[in-house]
Simulated assay, not measured.
Amino acid sequence: MEVTASLAELLEEREHLLEIAQWRFGSRATAEQVVQETYRRWYALAPAERDVVEPRSWLTHLASTINPDGFEPVDPLVHRFALACTTGDVPGVRATLASDATLVTDTGGHLRTTPHPVRGADEVASYAARLLTRHPGCHLTTEPVNGHPGLILRQTTQAIAVISLTTTPTEIETVYIVLNPSKLTPWHRT
C-alpha cells in the first residue's frame, strides 16, 4: 500500500510539474523536456543536498524557472532512437548506441523478450528495433522515466513497455525495458 501511495504521489508530482511547464511554454513537448531536465538535476544532487530541501518545493521552483535553451543534447538522441525503433531502422538505432551498449528486459509482458542482458551495439540495435517496431494500434512517445530519458510504448491508453535509457551527451549506454504488466500500471493514461 505504501508503494502504491508513493507511485501515486510521484505521478501527481510529475503532472503538477508538467502543468507548470506547459503553462510557461505553451507546448507539451517543451513541458516534457523541462520536467525531464528538472528530474535530471534533482538526481544529480548529492543525497546530502536533497536531504535539506523539501522535494516538491524544490522541483516546482526549478520547473518554473528552468530555461530549455540550456539543456544537454540528450533529447535529440532519444528522439532519434525512438524514431529508428518504431520504423525498424537497425542502423539508425545502432548510430545512437555506445559500442558496448547493454539492453536489459524483465519478463512477463505481452512482447517476447530474452531473460539475459543483450550486449554490444549491433545486438542491442537489432533486438531493440525488433522489439519496439511499430505494433498495430501502438505508439511510442519520449517521456522522462523516473528522472531519466525514456520512452513509453502504449496501445491506446495502456502502457505495454516502459524504456529507461542511461546516456552520455552523445550516445546511449544502457536500455532498460520494463514489460511486466504489474509494473506498468502507473504509466497507463486514462
Score class of each variant (00 low, 15 high):
37 E>H: 12
129 A>C: 12
40 R>K: 07
179 L>K: 04
102 T>V: 15
117 P>E: 04
187 W>I: 02
169 P>Q: 07
148 H>V: 03
189 R>C: 10
160 I>L: 11
18 L>G: 08
101 A>W: 09
32 E>V: 14
188 H>C: 05
43 Y>S: 02
52 V>N: 01
156 T>P: 00
86 T>Q: 15
143 E>M: 10
86 T>C: 05
77 L>T: 14
182 S>D: 13
113 T>M: 11
173 E>R: 14
117 P>Y: 11
187 W>F: 15
22 Q>P: 02
126 S>W: 09
175 V>L: 13
164 S>N: 03
49 E>T: 05
17 L>T: 04
21 A>P: 13
141 T>R: 11
85 C>R: 03
167 T>D: 02
183 K>R: 15
86 T>D: 08
149 P>C: 13
100 D>E: 14
94 R>F: 12
49 E>P: 08
20 I>R: 02
134 R>G: 13
18 L>I: 01
4 T>W: 07
174 T>Q: 09
182 S>W: 05
166 T>C: 04
12 E>A: 15
31 A>G: 07
24 R>N: 11
73 P>T: 05
60 T>H: 05
38 T>D: 07
190 T>D: 11
41 R>Y: 02
162 V>C: 10
140 L>D: 08
60 T>L: 04
44 A>M: 04
83 L>C: 03
160 I>S: 05
74 V>N: 00
46 A>F: 14
34 V>E: 02
135 H>V: 13
40 R>T: 00
76 P>K: 08
181 P>E: 05
107 T>K: 01
9 E>R: 14
72 E>M: 10
140 L>H: 02
174 T>F: 01
